[in-house]
């Protein structure tokens, strides 16, 4: 049989060597195989099917009649329908309020959960805060605070120096103290000299 030209061309494009081969199938089959096969097949199907099963029943089974020996009261089936009680059709209540109880339960549950969650969050806060601060932030904070300390020291020193540098004359002091009674001044001096000596000791 001549090969389909499209298929042959496709084959040539892929491989000239395979396209040049004789595409015959060399297998042999028994003579009359195809003549006998349908009959052999039907025999097998019959062996496996109910047709064969029915015909292969034992003589006793075959002799039995397929009729059921039971009897029913006369006109039973005519009366059977009448005996069925009439029932009103079942109604399905669409306006069920069951969903309200579900919604309420969900709200209460949500509230309890929220409260537990918030209390947990509050107890965890310091840990979370310390965990959330990165090393870099912490380092920069420490450096800044150290600088701040230094500047405060400088400020203290400069204040002390400023007081030391104040040039206060005796006349200015007497002007300033002229309205204050002597007893108050003596008391103030006694108190300060006592504290000063205490701090030096």
């Amino acid at each position: 049989m001549a090969k389909d030209s499209n298929i042959q061309n496709e084959l040539k494009d892929i491989s000239q060597a395979v396209a040049n081969l004789d595409g015959k199938t060399p297998f042999a089959i028994p003579a009359d195989y195809f003549q006998q096969f349908p009959q052999k097949l039907m025999q097998k199907i019959e062996n496996e099917s109910f047709i064969k099963e029915e015909s292969s029943l034992s003589p006793l089974m075959r002799s039995l009649q397929s009729k059921t020996p039971f009897e029913v009261p006369p006109a039973y089936f005519n009366e059977f329908n009448a005996a069925i009680p009439r029932t009103s059709p079942a109604t399905i209540k669409l306006g069920s309020r069951r969903w309200i109880s579900y919604a309420a339960a969900a709200c209460i549950g949500g509230l309890i959960f929220g409260l537990i969650y918030l209390s947990n969050q509050q107890s965890k806060q310091p840990t979370l805060a310390s965990n959330s601060i990165s090393n870099e932030t912490m380092a920069s904070y420490l450096i800044e605070s150290e600088l701040m300390d230094d500047s405060f020291k400088e400020l203290e020193v400069s204040t002390a120096d400023a007081y030391a540098m104040l040039d206060v004359s005796a006349s200015t002091i007497s002007d300033m103290l002229k309205d204050i009674p002597d007893t108050d001044i003596t008391g103030f001096l006694d108190q300060n000299s006592f504290e000063e000596s205490k701090s030096f000791n």
Binding site: T25, F27, A28, I29, P30, F37, P38, L41, M42
Partner: peptide, 22 residues
């Protein structure tokens, strides 16, 4: 049986080329 007779050869060769033995 008519269907079997019509297609048995084609079906057979398809099977035979795959399983080799008759």
């Amino acid at each position: 049986t008519t269907i079997v007779k019509r297609y048995q050869e084609k079906v057979y060769w398809q099977i035979r080329r795959l399983v080799v033995s008759h």
